[in-house]
Design a protein around this nucleic acid. Structure first.
Lengths: 261, 261
DNA sequence: CACAAAGGGTTCAAATAATGAACCAGAGGT
DNA sequence: ACCTCTGGTTCATTATTTGAACCCTTTGTG
């Protein structure tokens, strides 16, 4: 692992529930030497990717990230285009909807919305990267994203997030093949206990899926009616998202989706 | 300069007018060896900070930046809080207003708004870092930000953006001292020709200024009336911005501002 | 009040990882 | 068929990163 990766990984430890991190905590989180972490933090901070709270000495994400995000949004305004569609679908279904983009061999949440009309709801952390083999989004990406994802993923043993996570390579392959045929992925409690979800791919200017759209529902609330409604609604919404991103749904998937609707 | 800084600097070459950059172009922009640049690009991409267009082979900013920006906004929602205030002031004055945050020894635009009611207008690039000695924002930051900024800045010769840029250290010191007394910075064509601007500091949870708010006006349109109106309006708006950021204006500056209004 | 504990930060020899000149490969262009 | 411009790779050399040990300050405690 190169120096750059080590440093950038430090940024991944931040999350809404973990906004400020101190040197010692970084050391335990990253497992690297204190001096190493410190120099990385200093360098990230001097580039504006972090800033230090002079009172607590803790580090938090810096303004450079906002600046770059503004540039990225300007030339590829995914978030602002997609957010309204996510919100509408979440309101229609009354459940949590999220769109994520592929980031290497994970999925990175782009935006999400929860209707908040129920007492129980799915917790969704926008800072957390989603694994490909444990989430419905991930299966959709494996099924319709770049081919190398599956082989890269199987290079290491599959990590179990819950007791229901698919960890057998052959089972994963079979599941992904079924997703390719059905056009929609479904996973029951593969990533979080008591959460079931549907996922479909969304496409950018390439042939392969660039991201996914998914609905996550507390398993207790997943009725047969929802199981019928969600895939149909997802397919429709994902088609719109794909259009907003300036992409096209591949013809063979479009046929599958038409039959499903 | 460490490896991390070299890699992160590559990200700074992106701008709305320059959304995708190839290997060779990166080489000339950064002045580093092709192999070095390439390895850095690969590593940035594998962390999601860049993504490669498989058709053109060019690189563009990646989804990781959006994810981190979402986290940062969640716990320090500067942009979403400040944007409405910027928009209101821009509409009131009919001129371009921007808020920037300090990023090392530069200012990083956070958000801006232009009333767009005039034929001529100031061009403002959100991707461009603002120098401290050439902009009104920068003077405000030098005057009310951390003390070390001035000495760090004077370590190297001052670069001239235009023929009017202050490049003499003593003149800069005198100018900044005047800003500290008056509470508002003014610069005439110091950064861009035919653009004059006023700047004031905004404060976060620290004693020192964390950013600035500024109004930029085409010099030809800078009437005496505007020169009276802008500082008063800026002071009022910057006070609000400071409150939104959870900060407080230092007492001595508050007194100066009260007299000015 | 002394003292321990814990967090942030620094040092410098040792070792690892970054570097860059040279090289390869493919896509246009002439 | 040849040139050239692009992206990408190799490997010995070199310089940068590394980490155990150390220092400083704050905080809590007998």
């Amino acid at each position: 692992m190169g120096t750059i990766t080590k440093a950038l990984n430090l940024l991944n430890f931040f999350s809404p529930s973990h906004p400020e991190i101190g040197l010692t905590e970084f050391r335990t989180l990253s497992g690297q030497d204190k001096a190493t972490v410190h120099r990385h933090l200093i360098e990230l901070a001097s580039n504006g990717f972090l800033e230090q709270n002079p009172v607590t000495k803790g580090y938090r994400l810096g303004p450079a990230i906002l600046r770059l995000a503004a540039v990225r949004e300007r030339l590829f305004p995914a978030r602002s285009l997609v957010a309204p569609l996510v919100e509408r679908l979440a309101t229609d279904l009354g459940e949590l909807v999220h769109v994520s983009l592929r980031e290497g061999d994970h999925l990175s949440p782009l935006c999400h919305h929860d209707a908040l009309i129920h007492g129980t709801r799915v917790y969704f952390d926008e800072a957390e990267l989603l694994p490909l083999h444990a989430t419905a989004s991930g299966l959709a990406m494996l099924a319709f994203g770049p081919d190398h994802l599956m082989s890269d993923l199987l290079a290491d043993p599959l990590e179990a997030s819950t007791q229901y996570t698919i960890t057998d390579p052959d089972e994963l392959k079979r599941t992904v093949e079924r997703v390719q045929v059905e056009g929609v992925a479904f996973i029951d409690q593969g990533f979080e206990l008591h959460v079931s979800s549907f996922g479909v791919p969304v496409f950018g200017d390439l042939k392969e899926a660039v991201g996914t759209m998914a609905v996550a529902v507390p398993t207790a609330r997943m009725t047969d009616e929802l199981k019928r409604k969600i895939p149909v609604a997802l397919i429709e919404a994902a088609t719109e998202v794909t259009e907003e991103l300036g992409g096209t749904v591949p013809p063979h998937l479009r046929r599958i989706w038409l039959n499903a609707a």
